[in-house]
Every structure is written in structure tokens, then in C-alpha cells.
Write a protein that binds this DNA or RNA. Structure first.
Length: 419
RNA sequence: CGGGACGUAGUAUAGUGGUAGUACACUUGCUUUGGGAGCAUGUAGUCCGAGUUCGAUUCUCGGCGUCCCGACCA
């Protein structure tokens, strides 16, 4: 798209109340806008990056048999009352309200209950299992303290997948596959090298769960990493001797690090299926409770962690798969008709070749355009100017490495479409 | 939820019990044109309410809001 059509502005300075680097950069670059504490809007560039992350997650979930759906955010109290999670004592993060007729409703902070209730009408036989529905849905959590920009918010989209299996064995196989899919997701968004599958407490559901923790100073969690196996333990299970037996890691080999939880996978067992009456008939005609698991990733938090970790002193640095656009086309000396014509031609050809381009067609100075371009962080900058016109080749600069080269249109298209 | 800090223009910041200043952004004009350029020009502000006072942006109280530390994180 043309940058002249982009309504967002960049700023030199971040608002003083944003301390977290991810929020500072994303706000300065015009990717997000803060509505209130813990609530952010996604502006055009932010939405594009967010959607890239969503797309990656969607692909990986589909690969392991996930089937996408979309549940409502507004939830009736009934299934929650059945599971015992409606009361404020059980869950204090609830946003609750009432219908005009006085009925209690909640804004969902997760979806185990409504989905399990829904599935009682879909699952009745062992032939209906296993099943792996998932969604990208807005969650509301009335956090007592929102913090660190997009890291901990009160309203956020989560990819939540739920597994419905016949028994623990079948569940376990999928659980492992889901963990592998998660590893691929974090690899693709550029966090693979610093993201660890982490043993954690299972909360109220099971003895243990797994988190995917990305090492990052802005994180809220403390983990202990075993570099040999690339496994980690959350601090909450660090002193549990049983964890060492189960995982085989040796306490003395662990190193401590601050980390952000970018994903988690839970074994739920029959906690919800029993409460809500989700059972199936076996081949022998016996009734069994469905064995469940849940699997979450917050795409905006992932985006924030990428922003936090992969940026430099000039601004954001997006990996190709999550960048809002792949190419930042910058024309200088816009008053020169030849330059404008050349830029328009390059924009047309790249777009036709399927390359996403942000074209800075504005009449602004070179310094301003470069500084803004660095801040926005698109992977490849292509400059069209009187200089490049004279040389017959475009100047191409990689944002991450700073590597500069000079390419003709065909060389550039070849470079960008070679995969 | 406990503790702390803060609230001045779109943003970042000064300052004062007596007409509120600077920078960036924005308007307009001229110059400039490969790293947020220069000169000129104009616009724009004391979170809300009550109290003290001749007079409050400043002091006091309350509210609202924001951030940080801790607790919490299903």
C-alpha cells in the first residue's frame, strides 16, 4: 500500500507512562494505540503483523488436525456454575454483567465450559473422537494489574485449541504433537532459539502442564533452563523432586532466566467433561467421559515479544514471516518525475509478483524517510532516487543485517520470489 | 489487593499563590533535498470536584486516571 494512505503517524518519543520496550516501539511506530491500562487497539501495521502471527498459528494447528471455529465472547453462567468456576471466589478475573431480563452473563476469560457444553451435542460415540476444535477469540480478564505493554492485558485475542480424546493414551499422543506444532510456531515467528518447552504446575487440572517460555528480561516468570536438552522448569516446580525424576534433568545443570510465557498446553483430563456431562459410548456400548486438553497462544503477546527481543536502537526489526510488509519501497526526490515513475513501476511489478510492499510515496526528506523506515522495521528497504536511476539499479538494504546491495527489477523480483 | 510515584498543549518537558514557558508535531510562507534540515509564522495546555484564599495550575481533601514494586495469573 501507499504510505500516503496510512493514517498512522510515527513519533520520536514514546509516551512517558510506557516503560516496556515493546509498547514504546509499537506505539512510536504506530502499530498500536493505548485505550486504557491493559487495553490496546491494533492499528493497520499492527493488525497486519498480528494477522501474520495468526496465520502461522492457524497453519500449524490445521496441520495437526485442528478445525477452526469461533465461539461467542458473551457467555451464559450455566455451564460455569456446573463446573464450579462461576463464582468470584473461584475466578476473580471475571468481567460479569447482566442481560436486561436480569440473567447473569460473563465475558469469557477462556472457553472450556461453553465448548464442552456445546460438544455434548456433537460427541456421542467413540466414532466422533478424537476432535480438535480451535479458535482465535477475544478473552477478557479483569487483571488486578495490567503491565508491560502488550505482555499482560485485560482484553486480548487467544488461540485456544481444545482436544477431545477417548482416553489418556490418545490424548498423550496429540499432546506431544501439539507441543511440536508449538515449537514450529515459535521457530517461524523468530523466537525459536530462545523459547523453551517448560515444565510447569498443572494448576487445578493436572499435576503438570507445559509452558512455552521465551527468555526475555521483560518477562514475569523465572525459569531454569537445561541447555543440553533445551528443556526448562518453571520456578514453581523447581523444588519439586518428582519433576527431576519425571524429566530426567539434573538440577545442577540448570541456569536461571527471566522469561515470558508465550504459549501453554494443559492436560485437563475429565475435569470438565464430567462436570458438564460430555461422554461417549465405547464400541462395547459402555459410557466413558471424554478426555480433554487445552492449548493456548496469545498472538499479540507473541508480537510484543518479537518486538521486544528483535528490535535495535533504531526501531523494530521484523522477521520476514511476521513483518506487516516485506518490502519498504522508498522514493526520494519525489518532485523528479522520472523517480516517481520508476517507483510506481517497481511497486506495480513487485505487487504483481505477490510481494507485499509499503511504498513511501510521500513528499518528505530522505533523513525522515530513512529514520521512519528503520522504526517500522520492514525486512527489506528498496530505495529509488536520482542516484539509483543513474546507476540503473535499486539500492536494497536488509533491515536486520544492514547488508546493502544493488539490484535491477528482475534481480530484485527473482530474489524476493525465490523460496 | 497491599505499598510507592505521578497527572501542565497531540507528544515530551519547565515553572509559579497574581497574564503559563520551551522542544517536537501541526498551519502558512520561503529556502533546502541521501539520515527526523533551516528561517519566519500561526494555532493549541494546567485531569475532575470541593475547600482554604481577595485570587489556586500551585496549598488541603475527595474522586478519576496512569506507571512502578509486591501479591495474583484458572
Amino acid at each position: 500500500m501507499k504510505q500516503s494512505q496510512l493514517f498512522t503517524k510515527t513519533r520520536r518519543e514514546a509516551p512517558k507512562d510506557e516503560v516496556a520496550k515493546n509498547a514504546q516501539l509499537l506505539i512510536r511506530a504506530g502499530y498500536i494505540y493505548k485505550e486504557m491500562a491493559g487495553v490496546y487497539d491494533l492499528l493497520p501495521l499492527g493488525l497486519r503483523t498480528f494477522e501474520k502471527v495468526v496465520g502461522i498459528i492457524r497453519e500449524e494447528m490445521n496441520k495437526i488436525g485442528g478445525v477452526e471455529m469461533h465461539l461467542s465472547a458473551l457467555q451464559s453462567a450455566e455451564p460455569w456454575q456446573k463446573s464450579g468456576r462461576w463464582s468470584d471466589e473461584a475466578v476473580d478475573a471475571w468481567f460479569k454483567t447482566k442481560l436486561k431480563n436480569g440473567a447473569d452473563v460473563g465475558l469469557g476469560f477462556t472457553h472450556e465450559e461453553p465448548l464442552t457444553a456445546l460438544m455434548t451435542e456433537q460427541i456421542s460415540s467413540y466414532k466422533d473422537l478424537p476432535s480438535y476444535p480451535y479458535q482465535f477469540q477475544t478473552k477478557f480478564r479483569n487483571e488486578e494489574r495490567a503491565k508491560s505493554g502488550l505482555m499482560r492485558t485485560r482484553e486480548f485475542v487467544m488461540k485456544d485449541l481444545y482436544s477431545f480424546s477417548k482416553d489418556a493414551d490418545e490424548h498423550q499422543k496429540f499432546y506431544e504433537k501439539a507441543a511440536e506444532a508449538y515449537a514450529r510456531v515459535f521457530e517461524r515467528v523468530g523466537l525459536g532459539a530462545v523459547t523453551y518447552k517448560t515444565f510447569a504446575s498443572g494448576g487445578s487440572f493436572s499435576k503438570y502442564s507445559h509452558e512455552f517460555q521465551t527468555v526475555c528480561d521483560a518477562g514475569e516468570d523465572v525459569i531454569y533452563i537445561d541447555d543440553a536438552t533445551k528443556l526448562a522448569l518453571n520456578k514453581e516446580v523447581y523444588d519439586d523432586p518428582e519433576v527431576y525424576k519425571t524429566t530426567g534433568v539434573v538440577k545442577e545443570n540448570l541456569r536461571e532466566a527471566k522469561a515470558v510465557e508465550v504459549g501453554n498446553i494443559f492436560t485437563l483430563g475429565t475435569r470438565f467433561s464430567e462436570a458438564l456431562g460430555l461422554s461417549y459410548k465405547t464400541a462395547e456400548g459402555k459410557s466413558e467421559s471424554v478426555f480433554m486438553g487445552s492449548y493456548g497462544i496469545g498472538p499479540a503477546r507473541v508480537m510484543a515479544v518479537v518486538a521486544e527481543l528483535l528490535s535495535d536502537d533504531k526501531g523494530l526489526v521484523w522477521p520476514e514471516e511476521v513483518a506487516p510488509f516485506r518490502v519498504h519501497l522508498i522514493e526520494l526526490q519525489s518532485d523528479n518525475e522520472e523517480v516517481s515513475k520508476e517507483a510506481a513501476e517497481l511497486y506495480r511489478e513487485l505487487t504483481e509478483a505477490g510481494v507485499e510492499v509499503l511504498w513511501d510515496d510521500r513528499d518528505a526528506r530522505a533523513g525522515e524517510k530513512f529514520a521512519e523506515s528503520d522504526l517500522l522495521g520492514l525486512p527489506l528497504r528498496v530505495v529509488v532516487s536520482e542516484k539509483t536511476l543513474a546507476a540503473g539499479k535499486f539500492e536494497c538494504v536488509e533491515r536486520a543485517s544492514g547488508h546493502t546491495s544493488h539490484k535491477s527489477i528482475s534481480e530484485l523480483i527473482g530474489h524476493l520470489t525465490l523460496r
